[in-house]
């Protein structure tokens, strides 16, 4: 029986399914009252600032649909910026503007033009809650655009590569790099077609990788080798992830970090229910990974 063999292998490696993740980690370790901080990118920024964790600079917030016109005033004469729904999930509703067009419109990260009217319409949709849970009213966050460091440039051509570190009771214990593909439309979410690469938690060197739930060794677009990339400033990143737990004490926390070419690692967002595909990327189960940590490290 294939099923029984797999079941044995999964449990031997400490693989955690979605039911067990929720029931054994998310529900008992993550207090509900803290979830609004994680759900709102604006609150996350404030919390991160309190423990000296840097985030992309916030240019302004648009609170109401009639406010949308303030966008011109917020961005001033900048060429590039990002619009995000404060309560968006899974990278939905994020608009990246790279520059202006000669006609007075905007150019999206994908290269396609966007008129100012369309931009205002997009912002109004964000504010009405199109991308937030249960369609409740939201706020639109205007941020500086992150200029990605060239760490992954030779592997992955475009989009937003990020690093996710899973923190258990304040101890970072598992991590992966998420690379966008042409299929994932510049987004790094694995279920949209991004590539997940496991990271050795001690050294910050990439190991095994997964794409669409299958193990791969090369990037599907560039065919570059995915293993053996050293992430620069790895210790700082681990420190950053651990400090996030001080700001938002969720016992089971996902920390998403991007590396800006000028400012170094920046906290992108926090996630209260991470950790299924990170097991695939690392080819290691959560339970086994946790067993390797010295239990005295955990916050009681």
């Amino acid at each position: 029986m294939i099923g029984l063999d797999r079941l044995r292998k999964f449990s031997a490696d400490g693989l955690v399914g979605i039911n067990a993740r929720n029931c054994n980690y998310v529900y008992p370790l993550n207090e509900r009252r803290l979830l609004p901080i994680v759900d709102s990118k604006i609150l996350t920024k404030t919390a991160a600032a309190s423990v000296d964790v840097p985030t992309p600079e916030m240019l302004g917030v648009i609170e109401t649909t009639s406010d949308a016109r303030r966008i011109e005033e917020i961005i001033g004469d900048r060429e590039d910026f990002v619009v995000k729904p404060a309560r968006g999930a899974q990278g939905n509703g994020i608009l990246v503007i790279n520059g202006r067009t000669p006609e007075g419109g905007w150019r999206k990260a994908s290269g396609k033009p966007m008129s100012t009217a369309k931009l205002l319409y997009f912002i109004r949709n964000v504010v009405s809650g199109m991308y937030s849970k249960n369609a409740i009213a939201d706020r639109a966050l205007i941020e500086e655009r992150v200029i990605f460091a060239d760490v992954f440039d030779h592997v992955s051509a475009s989009g937003v590569p990020d690093i996710r570190i899973i923190v258990y009771k304040g101890v970072p214990f598992m991590a992966m790099v998420r690379l966008p593909t042409t299929q994932s439309d510049g987004k790094a979410n694995l279920h949209k077609g991004g590539v997940g690469i496991g990271v050795d938690i001690e050294t910050g060197v990439t190991t095994t990788a997964v794409h669409k739930n299958r193990t791969v060794t090369r990037h599907p677009d560039t065919f570059e080798e995915l293993a053996g990339i050293q992430i620069p400033g790895w210790d700082d990143m681990l420190q950053m992830a651990a400090r996030c737990y001080d700001a938002v004490p969720l016992g089971y926390l996902g920390v998403d970090i991007v590396i800006d070419a000028r400012k170094g690692p920046l906290l992108l967002e926090l996630n209260a229910r991470p950790g299924l595909s990170v097991q695939m990327a690392n080819q290691q189960g959560i339970i086994n990974a946790l067993n390797k940590i010295d239990p005295s490290l955990f916050d009681a």
């Binding site: 797999r6 050795d200 095994t208």
Partner: peptide
């Protein structure tokens, strides 16, 4: 099905 490739790749590090 989702985790079918789990544990199939060799660690190179």
């Amino acid at each position: 099905h989702r985790f079918r490739d789990f544990g199939t790749a060799e660690k190179q590090a």
